[in-house]
Each structure stands twice: as structure tokens, then as C-alpha cells.
């Protein structure tokens, strides 16, 4: 018993050291203004705010060039098909398509300055910083792989999602309030899909990743919207019957109200 205690302490100490980065590194602490966004009948988009601070201690080395923050918000995944039209016999028809497998419905990448200035491309690419570096796997035959950045289908997919406001990259969404305190604006458009969102915050200094933390948020339909959407999904026939009944009632009501004979 007595012989075991020092051993346990040593294991505990080792675990502690493994979990906590070396004393020289900064700690990143973030807080989100709202972890649960409710979609109601008047939902017209919402802006979330993420506050964060870089905690330093006495041993932290000074960073002359300051810190850089990259906030990556990813929505629930979906599989979709990007289609390309071409002229066939004089009319425009979908002729070619690619399947994008489990890509985020929402992808927001928010930084305090242009991504290219934060670190070198070799560092940013494996960390998936920026939409260009983000993995958007396409299924090509039996394989699933991301393509080159300038693949026309990938470019078109990103462009369409960007036009809808669902994919966005903003080099000015993160503002430093002091050298160590920052805030990030996360805009959610009106068409934002419901589900669980992951927020990944990366801290860079001198072109290297020195800290990382995560947070999460949930977007849910509430009240009537949720009720209708669930009913349509889970009880299709009943939902259809109810809608048809509603149509008959409306028609009957109108014929009674406007009856002239």
C-alpha cells in the first residue's frame, strides 16, 4: 500500500504533464454568446458572437508580431450532387455531376487578417484553414477524395454555397480588443440548416499553431416550425391527409363566406 502511493503519484503527475502543454505555451479560452439558436416563424438569420482570450503566464515567451485567430464553424454534414448543364439538341440539360460526400452544410472561416498572412501554405493546408484548404470529398468511382482547388465542380459548389451565405470566409470577422482579448462575429443566414455545429478556434503566433480549443452550438427549429417539419418527416401520410383536409376546409369556408345564391 505504502509502496504503491508514490507510483500512483508519479502516474498522475505524468498524466498531468501530458495533458497540459509545456509552460511556455498560451492557453486559449473562448465563450460563445449563445449555444442554442432557435428557428422560429420570424427567423431571419442571426449573428453570434464568440469572445476569447489568450492566457499567458510568467514563463510565456513574448510574441512580437502578436497573435492570429482562426475560427472555423462547420454545420451538420450532408451529401449532395453538383450538376453541370450543357446544351443538348438546343436545350440546356444537366449532363454531368459530382457527388460531394458528407460535406458541411455551413462552413464559416473567420480570421483577423488574410489567411495567407497568418502562416505558410504548407502549415495551413493540413490544418484545413480556409475554404480552399478545407476537405470537400467527392466520390469518384469507388474512391472518395478531395480534388484540386480549381476543379470546376468544387469551385462551382463553393461559389453557389457562398452566394447562399452558407460558405463564408472573412478576414475581418475577428477583432482584437486588446493584444490578448478578441471577439469573432459568426453570421448565420436565414437559410441556415438545423443541427449541431462545431466551432474550432486555432491560435497562431509567428506563423505556427500554438493553441487550439473547441466549442459547439446547436440550431433547432422550435415550436410550430419544428412540429410541422417533424410531422412531415415522421408521419408523411397523416401529414398529407391533414394538409388535404385543410385545403377542403379552406375551400368550403370560402364558398360559404362568399355564397351569393
Amino acid at each position: 500500500m505504502t509502496a504503491r502511493r508514490p507510483l500512483m503519484l508519479a502516474v498522475a503527475a505524468a498524466a498531468l504533464f501530458a495533458a497540459v502543454p509545456p509552460a511556455a505555451a498560451e492557453r486559449l479560452i473562448v465563450s460563445l454568446s449563445n449555444h442554442r439558436v432557435a428557428i422560429t416563424s420570424s427567423f431571419d438569420g442571426e449573428d453570434l458572437v464568440l469572445f476569447g482570450t489568450v492566457e499567458r503566464d510568467a514563463a510565456t515567451v513574448p510574441r512580437q508580431r502578436g497573435y492570429d485567430i482562426v475560427v472555423t464553424v462547420t454545420g451538420p454534414r450532408q451529401t449532395l450532387r453538383t450538376r453541370r448543364k450543357d446544351r443538348v439538341l438546343g436545350i440546356w440539360v444537366n449532363v454531368d455531376s459530382r457527388l460531394f460526400v458528407r460535406v458541411p452544410t455551413y462552413l464559416g472561416i473567420f480570421t483577423n487578417r488574410p489567411i495567407a498572412d497568418i502562416a505558410r501554405a504548407e502549415i495551413l493546408r493540413p490544418l484545413q484553414v480556409g475554404i480552399d484548404n478545407f476537405l470537400l470529398p467527392q466520390s469518384i468511382g469507388p474512391d472518395t477524395a478531395d480534388t484540386v482547388r480549381d476543379d470546376p465542380f468544387r469551385a462551382a459548389f463553393v461559389r453557389i454555397e457562398t452566394e447562399k451565405g452558407l460558405y463564408r470566409e472573412s478576414p475581418s470577422a475577428v477583432t482584437f480588443l486588446s493584444p490578448t482579448v478578441f471577439r469573432a462575429a459568426i453570421p448565420l443566414p436565414a437559410e441556415v440548416p438545423t443541427g449541431n455545429y462545431a466551432i474550432d478556434v486555432k491560435l497562431f503566433a509567428d506563423g505556427a499553431l500554438i493553441g487550439r480549443t473547441t466549442s459547439a452550438l446547436e440550431i433547432v427549429k422550435v415550436g410550430f416550425e419544428q412540429y410541422v417539419a417533424n410531422a412531415a418527416r415522421d408521419h408523411g401520410i397523416l401529414y398529407g391527409l391533414a394538409t388535404a383536409m385543410m385545403a377542403l376546409l379552406t375551400g368550403w369556408f370560402a364558398s360559404v363566406v362568399f355564397r351569393r345564391d
Binding site: R77, T79, T82, K85, W92, F157, R159, I160
Partner: peptide
């Protein structure tokens, strides 16, 4: 159908995974 569309590309959701 006959005039070249503004955007040749379009997207259709195949499957939504929660």
C-alpha cells in the same frame, strides 16, 4: 430552356446526415 443559363451549375441535396 433555350437560353444559356446564368449559372451552369446547380446543387441537389442527396442525403442529410444529422
Amino acid at each position: 430552356l433555350g437560353v444559356k443559363p446564368d449559372d451552369l451549375f446547380s446543387i441537389r441535396v442527396v442525403e442529410t446526415t444529422p
